[in-house]
Amino acid sequence: MAELHFIPAWFLGFNIAFEMVFMLAAALVALYSYRIYKISSQKEIKLFGISFGLLSASYFVSSIISLFFVSALEGNILAIAIHRVLNTQNIAIASYVVLLVLGYITLLYTTLKVGRKRVYGLLIALAFTAINFSFNKVFMIYFVSSLSLLFVNYHYYMEFIKRKNTNVFLTFWGMFFLFISNVIFLVQASSSATYVISHIAELIGYCFIVASLLRVIKNGKKKK
């Protein structure tokens, strides 16, 4: 048995609220992307929307896991455990991991701008092969997501250098905090404080991303 997350007992409930906020923020980005895709018919915009749609679904599943499948460890520490048998809990965790990794890989593929389906297929195959055959699956999940977000961050940094635009600046910081929220698990996955810090970093990240989106929406209304 392995633990996906260690959660301080006092944080249970807050984590579900955080995850619901992430779900709504990611869904907002996905829905607005879909609206822009309907106008422009650009594939990159559709993929960007799909990536946030997948992330939104992963947060939904994550909140379900936090609600039903948290078990008590010693002291005031709770855990989300991965069992060796096939049960509802493991199916939920597997769904969460698949949605999360697919979301980040789709985001990476969108920002790489290669436009070849085979590359997308290769990225997915490499990510899931690495996770499946890894001795430490939890570490590999966060390694894959962190590596994807590292490249996504590089893309947004270059975009900011090119445009010097407030919106892309906000998006860059948003993606940077999402990167921090993942990379922190690589450094200290076994600490329950990591889980709290990761959630806070992710919340800051989504605040930046939603701020960027709201500025776009506001600007669009002004133009009309």
């Binding site: 822009i36 919106n167 600007n219 669009g220």
Partner: peptide, 14 residues
């Protein structure tokens, strides 16, 4: 809607 599309693609580097 061109300006909205451009603002969106610029903001998210698309």
């Amino acid at each position: 809607e061109y300006h909205t599309v451009i603002n969106f693609t610029n903001a998210f580097g698309l």
